[in-house]
């Protein structure tokens, strides 16, 4: 483990004013650009679990792709993206990804259907003793030895998920992105996943947990970043989610919290704006009850309120 004191203070991942834009792949034509993520800020430190919560279609999975540098070619990123205090360049990514930065995908299709699981896990390992190391980690996550020789189709969903977690564990990653973009995972498997992720954080790793489900986020995370229409509208501490949400800063976060069954089940009217429906004002303004003229005119800047970040004029 890296215990040099200077790295203690530099965050693992620091993202500021980050935007992601898709453009038509025909450069000769003036086709409208589509901005999928804008004004995105987040900071993740060692041993910290940051949940990124957003409805499906809010562009949160693309965030993972952007950090990992696996975006389609017609996407451009702007803004600051630092890993351990230095810009995450294409060159740095080449030896960081799969080594210091790892992805835990949630889709079971992430395993190559024609490769034995043991071998797939070994691809992220370096040096000698790959096989032993891989088996040891398999035992740690509760997979029997013979699973190494099995193909993904022979595994149950839960086993496949453990293989994916094992992949992150065998690597010496310091920063892990867990992508739970697809809904529909059963509560038991989810609980198991949460345990493993907490375990990873206890070892000092930084985790970015991407999810659509605020309840899961609260179970696992230390901090929650709420993603709306490609923007972080609020970064709150887990403790802020209590009661009727009066300690929460952004109206969208409050609405999310109050839409949970145990908190009154209040539905939020309207829909998230599509990328080309966004006006010049605040993205949430059409659905916001507290919206005023200024919300129509300007995009709110991020502010620190009660030790959390928020992007709202009225917080």
């Amino acid at each position: 483990m890296n215990l040099i004191s200077s790295t203690r203070n530099t965050p693992l991942l620091e993202v500021k004013n980050f935007s992601l834009t898709f453009h038509s792949d025909r450069k000769d034509r003036q086709e409208p650009l589509t901005q999928v993520i804008r004004q995105f800020d987040i900071t993740i430190r060692e041993g910290e679990i940051m949940a990124v919560v957003g409805a499906s279609g809010s562009g949160k999975s693309l965030l993972a792709d952007a950090i990992l540098g696996i975006l389609p070619e017609n996407a451009t990123c702007k803004g600051m993206l630092h890993y351990k205090g230095e810009p995450l360049t294409e060159k740095r990514r080449k030896h960081l990804c799969g080594d210091q930065i790892m992805l835990i995908p949630q889709s079971l299709n992430a395993l190559d259907p024609l490769m034995k699981t043991g071998k797939q896990v070994q691809t992220v390992m370096k040096g000698k003793g790959k096989k032993d190391g891989q088996r040891a980690v398999f035992r740690k996550v509760g997979l029997p030895d013979h699973v190494s020789n099995q193909y993904p189709f022979e595994l149950s969903g839960g086993m496949a998920r453990r293989v994916l977690i094992a992949t992150a564990m065998v690597s010496n990653a310091h920063f892990i992105i867990a992508d739970e973009a697809t809904p529909g995972i059963d509560p038991h498997a989810l609980g198991e996943m949460v345990t493993f992720i907490k375990h990873l954080a206890m070892e000092g790793k930084g985790v970015m947990f991407i999810t659509h489900d605020i309840e899961t986020a609260l179970q696992v995370a230390d901090k929650v970043a709420v993603f709306y229409a490609g923007e972080t509208v609020e970064i709150a501490n887990v403790e802020d989610f209590s009661g009727t949400g009066e300690t929460l800063r952004h109206p969208y976060t409050k609405a999310l919290w109050n839409s949970l069954p145990q908190n009154g089940f209040v539905p939020l009217e309207g829909h998230q704006p599509l990328a080309d429906e966004k006006g010049k004002g605040c993205a949430f303004q059409p659905r916001c009850q507290r919206a005023t003229d200024i919300c129509l005119q300007k995009q709110p800047e991020s502010r620190i309120v009660k030790a959390g970040m928020v992007r709202c004029f009225h917080a």
Binding site: F22, D25, R26, P32, S56, S61, L62, G230, L274, D276
Partner: peptide
Amino acid sequence: DAYATPTKS
């Protein structure tokens, strides 16, 4: 998904 519109319109 819906948010990331296809590359070519």
